[in-house]
C-alpha cells in the first residue's frame, strides 16, 4: 500500500500537488500505525489497572466490576476501536486518577509546551541560521572557530546540567531571572516570558549547535558549485554570494534539521520541564506514568507522535517548495 502511494503518479494535479497529496496520505498512515503501536504498547505494560486503582480494596468481585465499567473486559480490538473513535471525535476519555476529561487536562498542558517550544524556536532558529551563515562566510577564521567551539560545548553538556548552571549564574547569583517557571492564570505575556526565560534559554543552547552546523556545512557544500564561481565572477560580494546564491540552494538539509530540532523542543523537553517545574505536557506524562493513569499516557504519547509526524511532514513539504525544479514545473 505504501509502495502504491509512493509510485502512483498523480498527473491531473501537477507534480507538486501530487507529491504533497501523497506525502499527506503517508503522514496519516504513519499516524495510524503509531496509534496502534501506542495502544498495544501501553496495553502490554505489566499490571492490571483495576487492581492498581482499587489497591487495598481489591477483591475479585470489585476488580471484575471495575474492569467492566472501564471496558477492560472487552477484546483488545474493540477497545482500540472505541479509543480511536473517541479521539477522532475529540474525546480522549477521562483520567483514571481524578476522573476529569483528558481533553481539558491535556489541552492546557500542551498549550504550555507549545508556548515554551515556540519561544525557544523563535530565538534559536534565526540565531543558529545566522551563526551558520557567519561561520560559512568567514570559514577558517577565528569567528568561525569560536562559533563552532561554543556551540559544541553547549551541545556536549546534558541539558539538566546546563539548566542548573544557568540557574546558579542567572538566577541565584545575578538574581535576574526566576528559577521556577510555574505559570498562573491571569499572568500577562511579559510576565510569562520572564518566567520561562531560563528554560527557553536552556533549550536554545541545546538545539543551536545542530542547526548551526548543518547550515554551515550545507552552505559550504553548495559553495563548490559552478554557479557560485559564476556569481563571484559577476563581482558579487562574499556576503551576497552566501545569502543570495548559496542559501536558496542549501535550504533542504537545513530545513530538515531545523524541524527535527523543533520536534525535539516539543517532545524532548521532559527533563527541562521537570527541572524548572514547568506545567507542560512532558511533566503531565511523567506524573501519569507514576499514577498508572493509562488513558492520559496514551493521549500524551499520541500528541507527541502527531507533533513529530506533523513537523516532519512540514519539513518534507518545505523541502519540496525549496526546490525550484518542483516549484516551477517545466
Amino acid at each position: 500500500m505504501v509502495r502504491e502511494l509512493i509510485r502512483r503518479p498523480a498527473r491531473p494535479m501537477g507534480p507538486l500537488a501530487g507529491l504533497v497529496a501523497r506525502r499527506l496520505a503517508l503522514g496519516l498512515l504513519t499516524l495510524f500505525v503509531v496509534s496502534v503501536i501506542i495502544f498495544l504498547g501501553v496495553s502490554l505494560l505489566p499490571g492490571d489497572v483495576a487492581t492498581e486503582l482499587l489497591g487495598q480494596s481489591a477483591t475479585p468481585a470489585t476488580v471484575a466490576a471495575l474492569r467492566h465499567s472501564l471496558g477492560l473486559d472487552q477484546p483488545l480490538v474493540a477497545r482500540y476501536g472505541l479509543w480511536l473513535g473517541g479521539i477522532l471525535q475529540g474525546d480522549f476519555g477521562t483520567s483514571l486518577a481524578n476522573g476529569r476529561p483528558i481533553g481539558h487536562l491535556v489541552a492546557a498542558r500542551f498549550g504550555n509546551t507549545i508556548f515554551l517550544a515556540s519561544v525557544a524556536a523563535l530565538i534559536s532558529v534565526p540565531l543558529s541560521v545566522g551563526l551558520g551563515l557567519l561561520a560559512a562566510l568567514y570559514r577558517g577564521s577565528l569567528l568561525d572557530r569560536t562559533i563552532n567551539a561554543l556551540t559544541l560545548v553547549s551541545i556536549s553538556f546534558p541539558e539538566f546540567f546546563l539548566a542548573y548552571i544557568l540557574i546558579v549564574i542567572l538566577s541565584m547569583q545575578a538574581g535576574l531571572l526566576p528559577s521556577l517557571a510555574t505559570l498562573n492564570e491571569g499572568m500577562g505575556l511579559a510576565e510569562q516570558l520572564h518566567r520561562i526565560a531560563l528554560p527557553a534559554l536552556t533549550l536554545t543552547l541545546v538545539v543551536i549547535a545542530h542547526m548551526m552546523r548543518m547550515t554551515r556545512a550545507s552552505i559550504l557544500g553548495v559553495l563548490a558549485s559552478p554557479f557560485i564561481e559564476m556569481a563571484r565572477l559577476k563581482g558579487a560580494s562574499p556576503a551576497r554570494v552566501i545569502v543570495r546564491h548559496a542559501l536558496p540552494n542549501a535550504w533542504s538539509p537545513i530545513i530538515n534539521v531545523i524541524v527535527l530540532n523543533l520536534a525535539y523542543l516539543v517532545v524532548g523537553v521532559v527533563v527541562v520541564e521537570v527541572v524548572f517545574v514547568y506545567p507542560g505536557l512532558g511533566q503531565l506524562m511523567v506524573d501519569s506514568v507514576q499514577k498508572r493513569d493509562i488513558p492520559v499516557v496514551q493521549a500524551c504519547s499520541l500528541l507527541f507522535a502527531a507533533t513529530f509526524v506533523g513537523l516532519n511532514l512540514t519539513a518534507d513539504l518545505l523541502s519540496m517548495l525549496a526546490n525550484p525544479r518542483l516549484r516551477h514545473a517545466r
Binding site: F227, E229, M230, R244, P248, R325
Partner: peptide, 16 residues
C-alpha cells in the same frame, strides 16, 4: 571583465 562558463546549466543559479 565578463565571463561565459562552459556549462550554462551549471553556471546559472537554479534558484533564480
Amino acid at each position: 571583465l565578463a565571463y561565459v562558463a562552459q556549462s550554462a546549466a551549471a553556471a546559472f543559479n537554479p534558484a533564480h
